[in-house]
Simulated scan of single mutants.
Amino acid sequence: MIVAQHGRKLDDHEWKPFIEILLSAEHIVLTTHMNSDGDGLGSETALGEALRLLGKQVSIINPTEVPPNYRFLSGVAPIDVFNARNEACIQEIALADLVVLLDANLRERMGGIWQHVDFGREVGKLKVLCLDHHLEPEDFADLMICEAYASSTGELVYDLIMSLQEYTGKRLMTPAVATGIYVAIMTDTGSFRFPKTTPYVYHVAGELVAAGADPNDIYDKVYNSLNIQALKLLGAALSEIRLCENNTVSLLLISQDMLRATGSKLFDTDLIIRYLLSVPSVQIAVLMVEMVDGRTKVSFRSRGEIYVNEIAKIYGGGGHRNAAGCLLQFSPEKASRVVLGDVREFLKTHVNNTVIQL
């Protein structure tokens, strides 16, 4: 495992072992985490196109459906959705000699794909690479590069592809590759406004635009293409937002009834959490979504030095310091009580030791 230090990027020498495994493979499967986002999708489509330019046979297989506002990336590289009954996807994994996981550093984030990857490693020559930027990686891959201080996995993919160009002498930064990386960086930096948006990130963005990425078109496709079901869900959700803990915490519970009534799906909830942190007094935003099996998906967002990944870790989750999540094994009603209790204790400890009344 390679974990780069704060304030620098990996050089060509550090990329070399990763590149050598990539180039030694012929049939490569790329994947990302469940409930994929712009960083994972943009990273895998960009890397997939670059590897095809190097003559590799590449398939992209994801554990869950691609959200509608990112489906234009299928024009960069086709994306298949894994299903345990889909023999074509299983066959692709069985034939692969390399699987690359992007934007996740836990094997469970691969969903049902992992058991087939694990089986391939046991009985054949399959290797696993992991490229990610989240905290606390699980050491399960043959080689993992996890740069926790990068703004996005897309930033790492940019550096990787530039090193691949240097290593192979082939031009790989095409408009399609640049588009995928730009989507990854733009979405994971909150349109270049989150704390890890360094001067280097702006430099990379400029290089991507010069290579053919269209910022206006990409932003329009990602953020201005909500379907009517998502808009109905947003309208219903906004009226249910609760402010608590002396208005320092915002909380929203989206039930299966709400999803059914609006005709929306799980991925339609992704853009809602930004509204929970829009109130100036709110320090922590909590979005809870009831899953079809009764469990509760929880997303946390926070400001400044309030690191909500510490809360997510209580429940076996994780993520970034200011953006994290977890999956609770109980109902939303119980989740609301339990999580709010832990948020209160967290705020007591981490925000000027202030006691906050429920």
Rank of each mutant, 00 (worst) to 15 (best):
S255Q: 03
Q256P: 03
R260D: 05
R260V: 13
A261F: 03
S264Q: 02
S264K: 03
K265W: 05
K265E: 14
L266D: 12
L266E: 09
F267L: 11
D268W: 06
D268H: 14
D268F: 04
D268N: 11
D270C: 01
D270N: 13
L271N: 14
I272A: 15
I273N: 06
R274S: 15
Y275H: 14
Y275K: 14
L276S: 07
L276I: 03
L276Y: 07
L276K: 14
L276A: 06
L277D: 09
L277N: 15
L277E: 15
L277T: 07
V279G: 00
P280R: 14
P280E: 09
P280A: 12
P280C: 08
V282E: 02
Q283I: 15
Q283D: 12
Q283N: 13
Q283S: 13
I284R: 06
A285W: 03
M288Y: 00
V289I: 09
E290N: 11
D293Y: 10
D293Q: 10
R295I: 00
T296C: 01
K297Q: 06
V298F: 00
S299V: 06
R301I: 02
R301E: 03
S302M: 03
R303W: 05
G304Q: 12
G304E: 12
G304W: 07
G304I: 00
Y307Q: 13
N309H: 12
E310A: 05
E310H: 09
I311R: 12
A312Q: 12
I314V: 13
I314T: 12
I314N: 08
G319Q: 07
R321Y: 10
